[in-house]
């Protein structure tokens, strides 16, 4: 390679540009290879032709790139366009002040929702176990109702079976309970900025009512056996318990500033170094 062709793809504007030369070998190689494969269902002659083409093409291809890659010099035709636009005016989207005032300046951190979910989940065990004890004289009843939802081989279990202790029921129930509590807590945390002043109202009352309503309408599809035995009054009560405990935990964590007062570009995650530095300078 001559020094000028060092990088054929990114040359300087010297009047000529070296580009890879046209070549027939790729198409010949492709055709040969296709014939080789096709010969498996046609006849050996096709395969022999294919192999010959492949070999010829390979030799030709190698000779194209060794010792010197074939290039073509193409004359650069001056083409100077200056990118212009008729639309020189730049509009900016204005957010009205009213729109902003809906967005809270302070809210609870999302992690507080998760903490609330964990606390609520632990607290909720109490009413659930109480329910089993009072209705079936078994602390495992509620556990197995939940755990049985995930154990597909528990087909049509009897009440006595559900009331007894089962490792599988306990393990599955713990997993389901933990995952759902964490997810609900996360959702709670994410929703908090929508109603930042009343975490207990949101988490303690509104969310349990909605959640119970949703489950009430879909549980028949998800798990008919569970739906058969569930006591909705107890269920709603334990949801409320969960919600209130979670709400209390959230209310106890301090509020933090939301990102609303920050400039729009920053909130969008645009890496705005310039913007940030000017901001800071302004503050100084």
């Amino acid at each position: 390679m001559s020094s000028e062709e060092k990088n054929p793809h990114a040359g300087e504007n010297t009047g000529v540009v070296a580009l890879p030369a046209n070549t027939a070998w790729p198409v010949v190689l492709a055709f040969g290879a296709t014939l080789c494969f096709a010969s498996l269902v046609m006849n050996p002659g096709v395969g022999i032709a294919g192999i010959v083409l492949v070999l010829v093409a390979l030799v030709g291809w190698v000779r194209q790139i060794f010792p010197h890659e074939h290039h073509e010099e193409v004359l650069v035709v001056a083409h100077t366009t200056i990118a212009t636009t008729a639309r020189t005016e730049v509009g900016r989207i204005e957010l009205s002040e009213i729109q902003r005032s809906y967005l809270p300046i302070e809210s609870y951190p999302i992690t507080s929702g998760i903490k609330g979910g964990i606390a609520g989940g632990i607290a909720m065990i109490l009413p659930a176990v109480l329910f089993g004890w009072l209705t079936q004289h078994s602390i495992w009843y509620a556990v197995n109702l939940l755990g049985g939802a995930g154990a597909a081989y528990w087909t049509n279990p009897t009440t006595a079976y559900i009331a007894a202790f089962h490792w599988s029921g306990l393990l599955i129930a713990v997993v389901i309970h933990a995952v759902i509590c964490l997810l609900v807590g996360l959702l709670y945390g994410a929703l908090l900025p929508m109603w930042p002043r009343h975490p207990i109202l949101l988490g303690g009352i509104l969310a349990p009512v909605l959640w119970t309503g949703v489950l009430h309408s879909v549980l028949w599809f998800i798990n008919p056996a569970f739906a058969n035995r569930i006591a909705w009054g107890w269920f709603a009560a334990s949801q409320l318990f969960f919600g209130i405990v979670a709400g209390l935990v959230v209310a106890r964590t301090g509020r933090i500033q939301t990102r609303q007062p920050l400039p729009f570009a920053l909130r969008m995650g645009i890496e705005a170094k310039e913007l940030m530095s000017t901001e800071q300078e302004d503050e100084k």
Binding site: N22, T23, V56, G60, H70, E72
Partner: peptide
């Protein structure tokens, strides 16, 4: 075949 290679002008 080999005259196909390269020396023709690019159309």
């Amino acid at each position: 075949m080999s005259n196909l290679q390269s020396d023709l002008p690019m159309p």
